[in-house]
Design a protein around this nucleic acid. Sequence first.
DNA 1: AATGAATGAGCCTTCATTCAT
DNA 2: GATGAATGAAGGCTCATTCAT
Lengths: 219, 219, 219, 219
Amino acid sequence: MADKAESTPKRIRSWKQDPEAVRADILREATSEFAKNGLAGTRVKDIADRIQTSRRMIFYYFGDKEGLYRTVLEEAYINIRKAEEDLRLDGLPPMEALVKLVEFTFDHHRRNEDFIRLVMSENIHNGHYMEQIESLHLTNTKVINQLSRICEAGEKAGVFKAGISPLELHWQISALSFFNVSNRATFSNNFGNALFSEEGQNALKEYVINCIISSVKAE
Amino acid sequence: MADKAESTPKRIRSWKQDPEAVRADILREATSEFAKNGLAGTRVKDIADRIQTSRRMIFYYFGDKEGLYRTVLEEAYINIRKAEEDLRLDGLPPMEALVKLVEFTFDHHRRNEDFIRLVMSENIHNGHYMEQIESLHLTNTKVINQLSRICEAGEKAGVFKAGISPLELHWQISALSFFNVSNRATFSNNFGNALFSEEGQNALKEYVINCIISSVKAE
Amino acid sequence: MADKAESTPKRIRSWKQDPEAVRADILREATSEFAKNGLAGTRVKDIADRIQTSRRMIFYYFGDKEGLYRTVLEEAYINIRKAEEDLRLDGLPPMEALVKLVEFTFDHHRRNEDFIRLVMSENIHNGHYMEQIESLHLTNTKVINQLSRICEAGEKAGVFKAGISPLELHWQISALSFFNVSNRATFSNNFGNALFSEEGQNALKEYVINCIISSVKAE
Amino acid sequence: MADKAESTPKRIRSWKQDPEAVRADILREATSEFAKNGLAGTRVKDIADRIQTSRRMIFYYFGDKEGLYRTVLEEAYINIRKAEEDLRLDGLPPMEALVKLVEFTFDHHRRNEDFIRLVMSENIHNGHYMEQIESLHLTNTKVINQLSRICEAGEKAGVFKAGISPLELHWQISALSFFNVSNRATFSNNFGNALFSEEGQNALKEYVINCIISSVKAE
DNA sequence: AATGAATGAGCCTTCATTCAT
DNA sequence: GATGAATGAAGGCTCATTCAT
């Protein structure tokens, strides 16, 4: 009875007449493709082929390739910010809170390579597309505020040194967590991939945590 | 009219019959274009248009677009390594040597944005083109050896803590210096560009130096 | 984002459930668009966007783009003929009647550029769509008959020369009145727009009237 | 031996490696297509298919569809002006010169329907593309100057009335000669095609000549 | 060593139109 | 009577590359 399975119609869609599902499907695959190849390196056709739809639908829902890219970028940022918000640090002692934040950031970036790659891509474009997305302008102060509160508390408790800039501290955490994912290919090509094995990454995380602690702790 | 016709315009060239100059011209503009737009985002035509040559010459000298890209990448690495070698640290006290190395790296990355962007591009391609360049496999151990010597000397002198991994240390220096350039666009879009003014960058450099010092110094 | 997405935006309509109003709205904007851009140059979407309806409605009411175009053409002719009928010349002395008719035609064409442009468009299509409209075949003899009567009366009164062809005379009046509107763009691009200022047009109208008078008057 | 004739290669071109011939071929067919269908109504593919070349070559030589259209327009005007210049009227008596000019214009427009249709098309576009062609701005005063000289001579000789505007006279000649071709389709659809038979056209030409004579002659 | 002419393949996008309710 | 979702077919155009000399 193998013929039953074989007689496939031209297209099978679970989401027929379900626009939200189509949109979500497109967005998911577009995220993956843009993350893999960048904006210029991605073919609209490739995105369409990965789902059971036509190129036409992509333009139907997102206007053009750049519109799709912008939406991908926006949703990626929204998801990341959402995850960050779930991290509740407010009750914790300052140093513990900071360590937890660093750990979270390091792990989170590692688990979301697509996001990292989209951000790399945006940097290649000098943030051009990001600038056009209004919703991004609001959420970013939150993370700085959170760090501010931790630094203040730490300073007051005498465990952090005085005068730490939350912005610079955030920059530092970001740099180490981001680079770990973004530059993995070239770094391991140049210096081997010892740092990127499971143990290597755990050790590196510890190293990063210590680095941050050393940077902030009172002497 | 036919203003937009594709047919190659007549050209006047100062370097007529000077193959090396043509090659160098192509390479220079290709570096700039690939750095700006990445591999997929760059048009062979755009490179040709920037110099007084035809697209045809690019294929004549470099085989294909990827061949040109590979050459660009290789030369960029060669130039960077050359600059690194000029930095003589061997006679200096360990901490001073380390600080000087960090300072140099931070400044050097800042001054060579094209190189940084080419490396970003390579990471988008998972280091694919880099892997094909044999000359790169040799030079990279030097920088680790250099750091090894500094760490050893520092440990012996009692100013560095014991057991520092030169690889991790290099990774740390690279991460902070690289991210500063690579993610400038998205970081300033998200958090303002205070860190990227002249003073901001000087302060950040100090911050990075202190970060490294804190990480290595004996307690 | 999805700002450019094609999916029909939600609409608010004052004429909800009023089919005649929808039809009239579509027709009005279609006339304007077809007059501006011709059949091939007009987008169904553009017509729909100008009113508060969906493309779907256009097909619902008019079958297809050509059906809409045909209807536009038909209505345009009907409106023109209606205006012509309002002009009552029968009691007037022949020369006065003729002058009034010329004046009317010249002014009327000037005021109805959309109609002129639709006729230009039809001529580009060699009258293809016009041929399919049955209602047009009837009304056109009226204008010739009218001229016939004027010529007859003029001849009988001795003020017109004998043997004037009403068809040729109509052709002459049409040519001058039509060209004045249809070729304004190219003519003024070539020879300046002196003839198309308010005074220029008034002078031109006098010129045209004299031209017709010279053509018909007995010597 | 029919196989010899049948084994046709994919493309036969007489002009292989002869850019001017390719250009000319494209231009000729493009003129014909644009004249027939207008800018929007013409398919680049259709032009390519009519000659033994690919769409690609059209873009190679003319940049884009509009570039081709502009070139077509420009060449069409150049050819027309060239023909006009060949008409030598300077020695003739004024009325004879004028009649000859009218006759020439009427016949010439009739013989060059493609040109008329291109001008119609330009008027649909409000002269947009014409404006971009610099070479057109110069040649057009010639025809007015020519008429000026005729009018002056005619007036001096006492056969023309005083104060004729050469511009208005040219407008009149143009209108009648242009409309004859441009509006043939709609006019004959509305009023029959009696005027457009060979005899009809000859009679109409006489009518037009008389119309012009009546307009200028001294009383 | 050098080059003007040519090109196949494929890109993003648009168009009028129909489906399914 | 009305509509949101969907689409096949084609449209103009661009890309890296090769041909022919």
